[in-house]
Write a protein that binds this DNA or RNA. Structure first.
Length: 270
DNA sequence: AGCGGATGTACAG
DNA sequence: TGTACCTCCGCTT
């Protein structure tokens, strides 16, 4: 479930379970075995999350394990001794008290600190990072003819937002996803940014994406809670053809830049 | 058993 | 714009 909130939570979880003492590192699947052998027995020194990129720090001469989960990647944690490997495990950490299994990442590679910094430098501001500069995102958005829905998914414009947060934040602010970035006014963008900071922080805390305001929750509306794969309560994401929770009109869907876009044409007029 | 889809990105042309 | 990457799972046959 990899949008930025998941990556920041993973950074905290890896640090909490492994930082500060030697860790056993291996790659049962074999694709990362040589590097894992180098790291085996070294301490995890710290973790960093930049947008959807996760970095596990090892002593200086070794560097950082750079992880990007891509579309399918997952991390599973557990306590006690690591169980026998089942399926394809790219990277496994264990210290006797905790274990972590990484499966299906887009990226899992060792980087120098300069390389880590270069990855971060290519990214737009991350709403989950204290050092984020929202002005940099506004600079790009306010000059672009691209649709705001495309810009929100462009990691060089804003880092960590994925398909769920993009659909939901645009709905929450009544913004048509097709509007060019440069047609948004500053107040609209600032409202989106501020909202993303809150929504994504809440996502880190809860481990799921909840975007529905209190007045539209299942309890408030007297409807049953939805059970969706992404695990949260949302307005439009993956609700194509269903009734909008606010206006009861049909939720629309379209393919934009090879991704599924969802919005309510009535609540998000042109 | 086999297919299609998924919260993502990079590269080819 | 299309395709490859690469893993799991749920649905269809």
């Amino acid at each position: 479930m990899p949008e930025g909130h998941v990556i920041h939570r993973l950074a905290a979880d890896y640090a909490e379970r492994f930082a500060g003492r030697p860790v056993r590192v291996d790659s049962p699947q074999g694709k990362f075995a040589d590097t894992a052998a180098l790291l085996d027995g070294q301490p995890l020194t710290g973790t960093e999350a930049h947008g959807k990129h996760l970095f596990l720090g090892f002593p200086e001469l070794l560097g950082w394990v750079h992880i990007h989960l891509g579309l399918y990647g997952k991390v599973a944690f557990g306590t006690g001794p690591a169980p026998a490997p089942v399926g394809q495990i790219r990277l496994r950490l264990a210290n006797g008290d905790h274990w972590a299994e990484l499966r299906g990442p887009n990226t899992c590679a060792l980087r120098t600190d300069d390389e880590r910094a270069a990855v971060a430098a290519r990214l737009g501001p991350d709403p989950l990072r204290a050092d984020a500069d929202p002005e940099a995102a506004w600079h790009r958005v306010s000059r672009s003819r691209s649709a705001i829905a495309t810009l929100l998914m462009d990691q060089q414009v804003i880092a960590g937002v994925g398909n769920v947060y993009r659909a939901e934040v645009l709905f929450r602010h009544g913004i048509d996803p097709h509007r060019p970035g440069r047609d948004l006014n500053r107040a609209e963008w600032e409202a989106c940014w501020t909202d993303l900071v809150l929504l994504m922080r809440e996502g880190v805390r809860l481990g799921r994406i909840d975007t529905v305001r209190p007045e539209h929750t299942p309890e408030a509306m007297g409807r049953p809670p939805r059970v969706d794969d992404h695990g949260g309560e949302v307005y439009v994401y993956r609700r194509a053809g269903q009734s909008c929770l606010v206006c009861a009109g049909p939720v629309a869907t379209a393919t934009l830049a090879a991704r599924n876009l969802f919005w309510c044409p009535r609540c998000q007029p042109r």
